[in-house]
Design a protein around this nucleic acid. Structure first.
Lengths: 298, 298
DNA sequence: ATGTTTTTATACAGGTAGTATAATTTTATG
DNA sequence: CATAAAATTATACTACCTGTATAAAAACAT
């Protein structure tokens, strides 16, 4: 993305944060960024598209930061999960994403609404999978409901806390800890009573690309790649390899048809730095990728 | 309110339900109801004012129905609370209030936003007070937090259930029961750990009219009036007396400066039907009103 | 230096909420 | 019934919005 375009994006985001999405007119953006209307519509096909661009650029950034917190840590440690949630909440607050989301959901742009809805679902799915890490496979039937209710509890607590103590005194860490403590009790209670509202299998209908067998692979990929990342995290060129590893993970798990040759070429690049990695980890990744593609053909 | 005006209100509400608030233009309302623009702005000073009128007329109706469910019942029975919540959820769904609320909160009308926020707070307060009935005074410190989180859980569960099973298959009763079961465990857990996010005293700063001592009275008024209502609920003229009793309750508890003489005159009217009531109940109400006004002067 | 792309300024179309006003109809009242 | 008052209508208008169209100017690339 063009530097100029990026600048417009940033200025528009700032205006949205200050005045809200609807209340910011395109003219405001033109005045503030000093471009003409023609240029604006050359960059973005509509005001909504601009908002999508803002969402996407931040979403990816936060998701990456959040996943990096897991490097070299035990996935079942709840404190890491708490840190990850805090990170997202802080980002939401800084970017005023929650109010912007709400504005969009109240609007009439179907595409935009679907995008937000999808992001919400992906977030629930991510929390659900983290809950499996934390609470164990045997609690699985209750963890999708728990993920959903956890988000509800967290959201209302943040809102209420802000209302009670003023907008700027929000102690995110306190609220997140409190909410997680409610969650833990809730999972216990659900396992006791066996009640279920929405079976986790429903996720498959929303994310058909993420098939059942893929979920097992997903965990193994994460583990292996985390091991590799950990091995090089102190190395001066680690960010280069991080990039390659992130790409492999994303292409494997998030695209409907992972491009096999592309992944193999990336793996080859990784082997350039094989002095840095444990040999067995690289081999493990190789084997995983191979069997993953075989499994995909069925 | 004028019949014609009422008709416009209804048609507009229907359009809002079908198309949403923003997507319904004033022209749509004019076309559908066959009035002219001049008349519209004679009735409502703006589109937002129209929405406020719609909210208010329904809000009062539902609140009344909800309180009537308590007549002749034990306030601590949780099944009554569940019925009350179901009633509100059904009304919200029929009137599409939740999406309309969200649209308003996303808009820039400060007054309208404050109105919705106040309604939300009043709802939380009502739930909090019902929780005191149900869980007992000793759980009080945790019940405001619980009320807030309960609303969050309920809301997310309803949304998620609709998403998973289709919009029209929503089994409200099932979702409410499920959510209430979560709540019960949560209150237990909170009492065990002693954690608190927002102390219930904070309610006093939001509703200064509702002083501490008033809260004790509130309960007593409710109890006595419920007893009176119960005594006449089979009588042919019960609705007339219901009206008088409702008025007394509202004037006492919801207005900042209850009109003493007006209440006394209403009590006198009630005594016209003293054959129907238990004498001691009427006397109890008299005494309560008297001491309430004395207390108000301090 | 020339051709291509980007940017600008400006006018325009079609939509919105709300105002203003004169003419007409309905309603209330003597 | 007649007349005054109030409510309603049709219509034109302001001011704003998003998004399109276009010709001229500027920036860039080969």
């Amino acid at each position: 993305m063009n530097d100029r375009k990026q600048r417009v994006l940033k200025i528009a985001h700032q205006l949205f944060i200050e005045k809200g999405f609807q209340a910011t007119s395109i003219q405001d953006i033109l005045d503030e960024s000093g471009i003409s209307k023609g240029t604006f519509y050359n960059y973005f096909s509509s005001k909504n598209e601009l908002l999508v661009a803002i969402f996407k650029s931040n979403y990816e950034k936060v998701q990456k930061e959040r996943d990096e917190l897991l490097i070299g840590r035990d996935r079942s440690e709840i404190e890491i999960f708490i840190k990850q949630v805090e990170l997202q909440m802080i980002s939401n607050r800084e970017n005023r994403f929650i109010s912007l989301f709400e504005e969009v959901m109240a609007s009439n742009d179907t595409d935009l609404k679907r995008l937000i809805e999808l992001a919400r679902l992906r977030n629930i799915r991510w929390i659900y999978e983290r809950f499996i890490d934390i609470f164990g496979e045997n609690k699985k039937p209750y963890l999708l409901d728990s993920a959903n209710m956890f988000l509800g509890i967290l959201r209302e607590n943040i809102k209420f806390y802000q209302l009670a103590n003023g907008l700027h005194s929000l102690n995110i860490s306190k609220v997140v800890h409190y909410s997680v403590n409610r969650l833990i009790k809730m999972v216990d209670g659900l396992a006791e009573s066996g009640e279920q509202l929405i079976p986790p299998e429903r996720l498959d209908t929303w994310f058909p690309a993420k098939k059942k067998c893929s979920q097992a692979y997903s965990k193994q990929f994460h583990q292996t790649i985390t091991k590799l990342k950990k091995a090089i995290q102190e190395h001066s060129e680690h960010s280069k390899y991080d990039e390659l590893l992130d790409f492999v993970l994303e292409e494997l798990l998030d695209s409907k048809q992972p491009r096999k040759f592309l992944i193999e070429s990336t793996l080859a690049s990784l082997k350039m730095g094989k002095a840095l990695f444990e040999k067995k980890d690289l081999e493990e990744l190789d084997k995983l990728v191979e069997s993953y593609f075989i499994q995909l053909q069925d």
